[in-house]
Design a protein around this nucleic acid. Sequence first.
DNA 1: CGATCGCTTCGGCCGCCGCCGAAGTGACCG
DNA 2: CGGTCACTTCGGCGGCGGCCGAAGCGATCG
Lengths: 249, 249
Amino acid sequence: MARPARRPAASRADQEGPGLASVARLLADGTRATFCLALLDGRAWTPTELARHAGVAPSTATEHLNALVTGGLLAEERQGRHRYVRLADQQIAELIENLAAVAPPRPATAARTLSADNRRRALAHARTCYDHLAGQVGVAIADAMTARDLVDWNRGLHLTPAGEQWLADLAIAIPPTTKRPALRPCLDWTERRPHLAGAIGAALCAHALKAGWIRRVGTTRAVIVTPAGRELLGARLGLSEAVLTPDPH
Amino acid sequence: MARPARRPAASRADQEGPGLASVARLLADGTRATFCLALLDGRAWTPTELARHAGVAPSTATEHLNALVTGGLLAEERQGRHRYVRLADQQIAELIENLAAVAPPRPATAARTLSADNRRRALAHARTCYDHLAGQVGVAIADAMTARDLVDWNRGLHLTPAGEQWLADLAIAIPPTTKRPALRPCLDWTERRPHLAGAIGAALCAHALKAGWIRRVGTTRAVIVTPAGRELLGARLGLSEAVLTPDPH
DNA sequence: CGATCGCTTCGGCCGCCGCCGAAGTGACCG
DNA sequence: CGGTCACTTCGGCGGCGGCCGAAGCGATCG
C-alpha cells in the first residue's frame, strides 16, 4: 500500500503558522540575509551591487530580489535600465535588526581573511543602522547621553528638558511628532546593548553626516568619526578619544 | 570540465549573513512556526501536545524541538519522562510577534472548516500574547486607556499619574523597575494596531486572569471576557458590550 | 543604428531538510 | 517486575529551492 498523503492536508493548512513562516523563509537564506543586512544602511542598491556584495551571479540576485519584493520586505523603484531596491519601511528594518540581535552568541569572530576582519572591525566600531548610529560609537553616545541626563529611560525612553536644550544648542531640529516614535531604543547587534533610534536618533545621525562629524567608509555602512567629530563629541558628551577611534589591532 | 565550486567559499562564509539566516531558518518551517505561535501563550508544552497541535508525528516534533532548543529560541525542562518546552525569553516572543505582524496582508481569511473558523475568530477577538492581552479586546483596552489619559504616547509610552491611580484603585501593583520596560507597545498581529505590553501589560493580564475578568478557552491562548469582566471593563474603561463579546456570526 | 550594459528568464543540476514508521530507551505504575 | 507511556533515534524517501550559465530584452550611448 502506498504511504499516506504527505500531509493530512486539513490539519496543517488552516493553521496560523504559514504567514509567519513565509516571512521567515525569506530571511532564512544566507544570500538574502546578506542582502537585507546590506540594505540596513537605508540606501537603495542595485541588483548588480548586491550580487557582487554577496558573491553570487546577477541572475541569482534577481531571483532573490523578486522573492523579497513579492514578500513585501523590499520596495523597488525602476529608472530606465536600472532597478533600485531598499527595505520596504522601518518596521522591516527593525525586524531584521531584532533577528540579527538574537543570532548566535558571537561566532567566535575569527574571520577568514585580513580584509574581512578589518571590515568586521570597522562595522563593530561604528555604522549606520538603517537611519541612525550603531556600533561601539552608537552605544557610547547613548550611554553618555544617559549619564548626562539628556535622555531618561523611565517610563519609556525620552528626551529630558536638558536633552532638548542640548539638541537646540547643536542646531538640531526635533522632528515633528508623527506615528514614528521620537526616541526608541534599538538593540545593538554587535554590542548587545541599546543605542538610540527613532526620529531623533535619525535626526542626530543625519546631522552628524551633514556636519561632517562622521563619514561613510566606501560604500559600506561602516562610518568613521572625523577629527571634527571627535572634538565635538568629546566636548559635548565627554566621549574619549579611545572610544571614537577604530581599534587599530 | 567540472563546474566551479558551488560557492566561492571565502566570498560568502565571512559575511555577516549566516547568523541572521540561521535564526530565520528555524522559523521558516510551517511546523516550527506553528509550534512557536502556540508557545506564545507563555506556557510550557510537551512534544506530544505540540505534535498533535501541528498535525505531525511525535518523532518529527522531537527533531524540530531539538533544532529550536539548540538554536536558542526555546528553553526546555525535563521532569521524569516528560519534557517541557517554552519560549526562551520574552525577546524571542517579541521577535515572533513582530515577524507575524509583518506577514501577508490577511490571507483572505476563508477558513477551510467551521471549527477552524471559530478558532480563528476567537483568537482575533481576544487572546494572550506571551504574557499580555491582544486581539480586539487588547487593542480596545489600549485605546480606552489612551482616550482616558491613563497612558501617554508622547516621549515613549508610559503611565500618567492618573494611570497610576487607576491601577492602584484596582489593587494592581506596579511591578518594580527592571531591565524590562514598564510599558511598551506591541503591534497586534490581527488588528495591526498596538496593544499594551511590557511589565505593566503583563501585570494587567495576570490580574485579569486571577480576578476572573477573562478566562482561557480550552488549552488555546484565546480568552473570553467573563460577565464580571464585562461589567468591570465597562465601568472602569467605558468599553461597550459589543467590543467585549465575541462576534457571534 | 550597432554596440553595450543592466537586468531578466529559462533549464537543469544537486544538496538540504522535513516527513514518516519502526525500533529503542528510560521513567513510572500496578 | 512486566506493561505502558513519553520521548528519542535511525534509515530512507522525496520535494523544495538555490545555484549557475546561456540566451533574451529593453534602455542608453556613441
